[in-house]
């Protein structure tokens, strides 16, 4: 009884691997054919190119452009621009926004695209990116003038610097801890 690949085992191995390969090809082709539907949302570029249907429930995703959020002080109505930094789409929404909603934040809006090119949203979801960091680090980065996209490259350095400052005992107050909320 050895484990060497006898012709019989070899044949079995090939049959099984062939089976898996065929199944993989079938799944791959299916996913390729359905790729437009698997994407969760349309980006503003796709909407500008006319890929999104009008007057039907769609999802659009991108970043909330800085300085475009307009809130109605008397109601929950809010307007903002979703951008992929190539094209923009204006969104109207009435309702409660998720905690993470803010300018420069990724969002997915569910709603209908109207002829004017704006979206009447029924639901706004915040999208979180893969970057995690403590508030002090985020604060220090912002003060140093870095954009959120550059945060990660700098975060490690700043964390180290803060650590060193803490050790040296010259931290400038605890005010930095919570101010970015």
């Amino acid at each position: 009884m050895t484990l060497s690949l006898t012709p019989k085992r070899k044949q079995k191995l090939y049959v099984l691997l062939g089976l898996v390969a065929l199944a993989a090809i079938a799944v791959g082709l299916t996913l390729y054919a359905l790729r437009a539907n698997i994407n969760l949302f349309f980006s503003p570029v796709q909407i500008a190119a006319g890929e999104a249907p009008f007057e039907r429930q769609i999802r659009a995703g991108g970043m909330v452009r800085e300085g475009t959020v307009v809130r109605n002080p008397d109601s929950l109505d809010v307007e903002f621009t979703v951008t992929d930094y190539v094209d923009d789409v204006r969104v109207h929404y009435s309702g409660i926004l998720p905690d993470l909603f803010r300018e420069g934040q990724g969002v997915v809006v569910v709603g209908q695209l109207h002829q004017g090119g704006h979206i009447m949203a029924d639901q706004v979801l915040a999208r979180h990116d893969e970057n995690y960091m403590p508030p002090e680090v985020a604060q220090a980065l912002e003060e140093a003038g870095y954009k959120p996209e550059d945060f990660q490259q700098k975060a490690a350095d700043v964390a180290k610097r803060l650590e060193a400052e803490k050790a040296a005992g010259n931290r400038n107050g605890d005010g930095a801890t919570s101010s970015s909320y």
Partner: peptide, 23 residues
């Protein structure tokens, strides 16, 4: 591959750190 609500991987063994060491 696709646009998703879920964010890309934060934690990787190879350590393309998307989070600082203490996290």
């Amino acid at each position: 591959w696709w646009y998703t609500l879920h964010q890309p991987a934060t934690f990787t063994i190879t350590g393309r750190a998307a989070m600082p060491m203490e996290m």
